[in-house]
Design a protein around this nucleic acid. Structure first.
Lengths: 333, 333
DNA sequence: TTGTAAGCGTTATCAC
DNA sequence: GTGATAACGCTTACAA
């Protein structure tokens, strides 16, 4: 059960521990003969280097910590993919931990990650208080994804939610819609910019904004539509705060006998895999998630290498993906 | 930037390093006075213990490694939740890594996890070769989730796919269906048991099985339905290998002008959050994912504590969740 | 090119 | 109760 150590390999190869260390790290100043001897001994013993001991001795780390606030949301999976590919390219590896969208669990996840002394930390849509983040930022580089912050020592990567919802409004207006409602994300992350984007885009087109309180879930989307029906005037188009909400809205509309997009057009946000399902085929706003992950990793590694100390704030351009849930108002179903 | 060490805390509190260590580990044999002094010093310095150094010195680990084959599949998120809660209860923490369903990436993820010398390893639906797994199993406890294995040194946790699909067949037969097709998962994990369950359940009811090759994606499900239409006889019911496949099948059926469940009933597998969306409302087979995670963690920790060396093979009972995509054949749409 | 020796931050074993 | 001191597995000057 006990794993072999460098000492074991050294003994078997008849060399010193230090030499094994050099071979393991691919140093050029080792004779070919010794190198193969060491490598063979390691192979025979099934030796693999002890990352923790290495990091302890070298006072360096090749680990980036990632805190994913919610593993259930596929949004983060692609951000992690982006982080992973850049990290790997540059010789770093990821360790992931999850916060379950609870500040308490997130705090523990953060501490756990920190206890491994990673070179840097990426927090994906964290809900922990800013204070905890800025304290941690005193000790290592931190990048926030899908959460903005004014802390001057952390980098941030976000999509421009204002612009994204603006694209959705423009699209609907160009189709001829004038009565467009926004189903709001409430306290949810990034809900603010999306709402602001809606309001200002409507104003730009000289239209009256109508915001209905809702949340980032499909039942909330359905409920919002029911409220809308109770309230009297039905809009010709709905812009949801995210894809889940949009799907809930669609099913409530259909239950009410309203066709999508025949009677009401619906636009989502995030372009999750759900939106791409042919059964759903939702027009939605795409965030460049993979790119966000890549930029986050790069921001982290720049700081790790000491290339930069000023904070960087990436604001990426979202794009509209037109599918089958939007059409001119009053068109055939 | 450099983090404070135990030495720093000791100095500030005016005690020895060993005493700080005792306090950090909550030893009872420390005077109340010194304890609070140490704790305060640690707080002021922002000290947090160095997990790697601790593990190195104590020759123990309180870390469980988790390799998630595919972060995009929400199935695993709940398994991780189960693992996490048990691990936490027993004073362990998780570090997660992802394999992206590629054997090469998975190997790297495995090595990375191993390099932290965790107390045990949970592999969620891994695709790495058995050899790699059994080699690793020589050095630490390993549990496989959603992947069976005959390796005598690893534990496994699976749902009984045969039984699960049997439930689906029974349900459809009790509704009056006799012409039931299975859309097969091909090489996918757990596709074999599901197919066998279908065949034997059909035989039990004296019905002819009909298996159509497919895959675990919605486009594959749609394609299989198109083949079925081209082939002539349409069944009255379809059992998909998983929920994604089922949703694809539904949309292809609807595009063909066939109502679900009016003309054709559809059953999925996994009870993912997708199936629960009201817009989908899919009848499906539920795996007790959280429970699977909990059992996996418990199996691991039993071995870690040396309480057991014989392998354990958990085979959990799935259950049927009846929603809106199944009805008697020939019924109204 | 190779070996020796001194750490890295912690725990464990003793004495006091 | 408290404090030295020797590990843990590895890296890294520095010497040889």
């Amino acid at each position: 059960m006990a794993r072999p150590t460098m000492e074991d390999v050294a003994k078997r190869a008849g060399v010193s521990r230090a030499l094994v260390s050099l071979v393991m790290r691919g140093s050029p100043k080792v004779s070919e003969q010794r190198r193969t001897a060491v490598l063979r001994a390691a192979e025979e013993l099934g030796y693999s280097p002890h990352a923790m001991a290495r990091s302890l001795a070298s006072r360096t780390s090749t680990v980036l910590g990632v805190m994913v606030s919610d593993l259930h949301n596929a949004f983060f999976a692609e951000v992690v993919d982006g982080l992973d590919s850049v990290a790997r390219e540059q010789g770093f590896e990821l360790i992931i931990n999850t916060g379950g969208r609870s500040p308490a669990r997130e705090r523990r996840a953060l501490d756990s990650l920190l206890s491994f002394r990673p070179a840097g930390l990426a927090l994906l849509s964290p809900v922990v208080p800013t204070a905890a983040i800025s304290t941690a930022a005193d000790h290592l580089p931190i990048v926030l994804v899908a959460r903005s912050s004014r802390v001057s020592t952390v980098d941030t990567v976000n999509d421009d939610g204002e612009q994204g919802v603006g694209l959705a409004v423009d699209h609907l207006v160009s189709l001829g819609h004038r009565d467009i409602v926004h189903l709001d994300g409430g306290e949810g992350s990034q809900a603010g910019p999306r709402r602001r984007g809606y309001v200002s885009a409507m104003a730009r087109h000289g239209l009256d904004p109508r915001v209905v309180d809702s949340e980032y879930t499909d039942t909330a989307g359905a409920r919002a539509v029911q409220e809308l029906r109770g309230g009297g005037r039905m809009p010709t188009a709905v812009i949801s705060c995210n894809d889940f909400n949009a799907v809930g809205a669609i099913s409530a509309l259909e239950e009410a006998g309203l066709g999508v997009p025949g009677d009401v057009s619906v636009v989502g946000y995030d372009n999750t895999s759900l939106a791409a399902l042919r059964h759903v085929s939702l027009t939605t706003v795409d965030q460049p998630r993979n790119e966000m992950g890549r930029l986050a990793a790069e921001a982290l590694l720049q700081r790790v290498r000491g290339e930069r100390t000023d904070p960087v704030r990436h604001l990426l351009h979202p794009s509209l993906v037109v599918r089958s849930t939007t059409a001119p108002p009053g068109g055939a179903s």
